[in-house]
């Protein structure tokens, strides 16, 4: 059985001074990507979700208030609007997360196929509770709603990949594999999502623009 839901829980965010000009951290690549994605829609506001994905990648896997400030600046809107959108969606992390985020499904099919066992086992093995990050910053454990791969229940998402038909042995092997990898799965996921938005010609365009910029800098 799952934990009682915490009613009215709201991610408390640090405030930033909106009067000060934001500190801009987007890379040239991020700026190029955002400019192109904005052109997919009749107005730039529609690029809000992709812009937040770009920010999540650029800020190392989560959205601190500074990231929301930068998105507001680049989208020409207010901090409040961006915060409103960012806090609505569960995949935008409002708090720092570990390098590897383990998202275990415990929804209906997974719950009757052992999803909670997987979750409890991971809690025990990592020594943390759901929603926490290991002290070394390697793993964050999350309980998520249906990932819609119920045919392979129980299922867990790690970054770009779904792992299905999980057993405790599979979890052991997977954790070893993830420990030895270097990838930041949360950043990787955000990057994949951004790349999925871009058409082939846009991606080539970006590479050319970046190459030009690099040449100009050398000269």
């Amino acid at each position: 059985m799952s934990e009682p839901i915490r009613l009215g829980e709201y991610p408390r965010m640090r405030r930033v001074d909106e009067r000060k000009p934001p500190e801009l951290r987007f890379s040239q690549r991020a700026i190029e990507e955002l400019e192109r994605i904005k052109k997919h829609y009749p107005n730039k506001r529609a690029a809000m979700l992709p812009a937040l994905w770009i920010a999540q990648r650029e800020y190392g896997g989560y959205l601190p208030p500074e990231a929301l400030m930068e998105v507001a600046y680049r989208m020409g809107t207010s901090y409040a609007v961006v915060e409103g959108v960012a806090t609505f969606y569960t995949m935008y992390n409002k708090r720092p997360v570990g390098r590897v985020m383990l998202e275990v499904c415990t929804n209906l099919t997974c719950s009757i196929c052992g999803g909670y066992e997987i979750l409890r086992y991971l809690e025990e093995k990592l020594g943390i509770r759901v929603g926490e990050t290991t002290p070394d910053g390697q793993f964050t454990l999350m309980e998520v709603e249906c990932l819609n791969d119920c045919g392979n229940a129980p299922v867990m998402q790690v970054g770009n990949r779904y792992y299905g038909n999980l057993t405790l042995e599979k979890i052991d092997a997977l954790l070893e594999e993830l420990k030895s990898s270097e990838e930041h799965t949360v950043v990787q996921l955000a990057d994949t999502i951004v790349q999925c938005h871009l058409t082939e010609s846009e991606r080539q365009d970006i590479e050319r623009a970046l190459a030009r910029a690099a040449q100009a800098e050398e000269a």
Binding site: H40, L49, P50, W53, Y89, T90, M91, I193, H197, T199
Partner: peptide
């Protein structure tokens, strides 16, 4: 165009 959601 592909538009990706963010968990909802």
């Amino acid at each position: 165009y592909i538009h990706m959601g963010a968990g909802s």
